[in-house]
């Protein structure tokens, strides 16, 4: 299983140049323009991490596509279409904020980072783990995002990823909605 650091470290540099460029102010005591730059830099960093994770999800579903069949394959296709929509929207926002979205890594790079998947159960289980990582990222990013629009987007995508876990858990024959508070850290996984 990939560690969170590995997953989120698959890129995350979309906003790094902007973060460095914004250094020099110290938040509360810095003038408004400097604070705005810092906020924009943090937005870019968080959106960049989210985009990297969306790319990872897309690659993971592609890697598992040969292993799943029937309803699980249909579900997987529907989910990956939504991950692509998330990635498109995040890339648009990064550009709008003056950043440069990271491209996906190569198939080989993802394959080296992924666990060995030997069947449908492995592929679905890996999907649940990655979706939970995405829920965690979006939920924990929310208070750090600077605008209501970005917060709404993060909440909407977190919910979408949580919906994916419900579909995948159903395909695995598990309780689809195990936790009242979906943080991506639930005991049920």
């Amino acid at each position: 299983m990939l560690t969170r650091r590995e997953l989120l470290g698959l890129g995350g540099a979309a906003g790094s140049a902007a973060v460095i460029g914004a250094c020099g102010g110290n938040g509360r005591n810095s003038p408004p323009r400097s604070r705005q730059r810092l906020a924009r830099a943090l937005d870019l960093k968080l959106l960049g991490s989210a985009l990297d994770l969306e790319h990872t999800l897309i690659a993971a579903y592609a890697a598992g596509a040969e292993l799943v069949h029937g309803g699980a394959l249909r579900a997987s296709r529907a989910i990956v279409a939504q991950e692509r929509e998330h990635a498109r929207r995040l890339a648009e926002l990064i550009r709008a904020l003056g950043g440069q979205p990271n491209p996906p890594r190569t198939r080989e790079e993802y394959a080296r980072a992924f666990p060995r998947l030997t069947g449908s159960h492995d592929a679905l289980r890996f999907g649940v783990d990655l979706e939970n990582a995405a829920v965690r990222l979006y939920v924990e990013s929310l208070p750090k995002l600077s605008s209501p629009e970005l917060r709404r987007l993060a909440a909407a995508i977190a919910t979408s990823e949580a919906e994916h876990t419900a579909v995948l858990r159903g395909e695995l024959g598990r309780t689809q909605v195990p936790d009242a508070f979906v943080t991506g850290r639930g005991r049920a996984g």
């Binding site: 529907a78 939504q82 991950e83 929207r89 939920v139 919910t159 979408s160 949580a162 009242a180």
Partner: peptide, 30 residues
């Protein structure tokens, strides 16, 4: 609030499946 919203999204998935509707009609819930 986001963790509660996500739980409601999961409820909606189960209900849509029970009603034989598309469980994932939108990539942006809400």
């Amino acid at each position: 609030l986001a963790s509660i919203m996500a739980n409601h999204g999961q409820h909606a998935v189960v209900l849509r499946q029970a009603l034989r509707r598309d469980p994932l009609p939108s990539a942006f819930a809400g």
